[in-house]
Design a protein around this nucleic acid. Sequence first.
DNA 1: TAGCCGTGGTG
DNA 2: TCACCAAGGCT
Length: 291
Amino acid sequence: MPISSDVLIDWFAEQGRDLPWRRPGCTPWGVLVSEIMLQQTPVARVQPIWEEWLARWPRPSALAAAGQGEVLRAWGRLGYPRRALRLHAAADAIAREHGDEVPSDVDTLLALPGIGAYTARAVAAFAYGRRAPVVDTNVRRVVARAVHGAGDAGPPSNTRDMADVEALLPAGDARAARFSAALMELGALVCTARSPRCADCPLTEGCAWQHAGRPAYAGPAKPVQRYAGTDRYVRGLLLEVLRSTSEPVEKSRLDIVWSQAGQRDRCLDSLLVDGLVEQTADGRFALPGEH
DNA sequence: TAGCCGTGGTG
DNA sequence: TCACCAAGGCT
């Protein structure tokens, strides 16, 4: 048994961070907003935006009543702005179809836009105290090391990864939810990707990686995502122009941010397709739903 | 399943 | 400096 739930849960009680979406008064809606914002995004950047959102839109119906452009502006520079539109759409569905209450059932959550295998189970566990295998990048790394003795997780396989974690979950709902939060926190604070703090780890005694002599990662190389000069980068430049102005802009204002016309136009087209940009009747460009 | 989708901090 | 990394989802 490489992971003692008692030891891990005790460690979490003492060392876990006091984050606003973990406080007792936080609503399931607050938890859901945090989970979407935290996708591929560090806690430090999420926290101030989360505070603003919860104060401004304390319930799903409140967010649903806002315009898309407003929501995209409030999203600011968190990144992956399609998340903001999906959360907006999810809020609308929750308000209309679920009585303005965030669902607690994994399958119901999975049906909402922007909510996948991780987020659905994270909400079930952290907002409702349900027993569910919550598998994110931190959990995959901790399990790879502590259970499998590998330096890092291999390529993700949702079915296998969830089965791995399911086997580790303690029996009760509340304890399983606590355990899941603790496992993630251990990966975030101690069992980190670059330089793990094994000296501070509560699980070293049973850790398979430790016993194997901490071998380096031996799996296939992970694909590296370039950014500078990519379409993702250019889309970011275009959106930043629209976020920074309240009035629709002429295309010439967008053309100056990137010299390669072909790539620039392709990116603008894709933003229109994604619903992140709209064209006004007179041919100018703006964030959606504002004109 | 691999590739795409933003952004900023860091070792 | 610059590649890597950060609570994924969708197609």
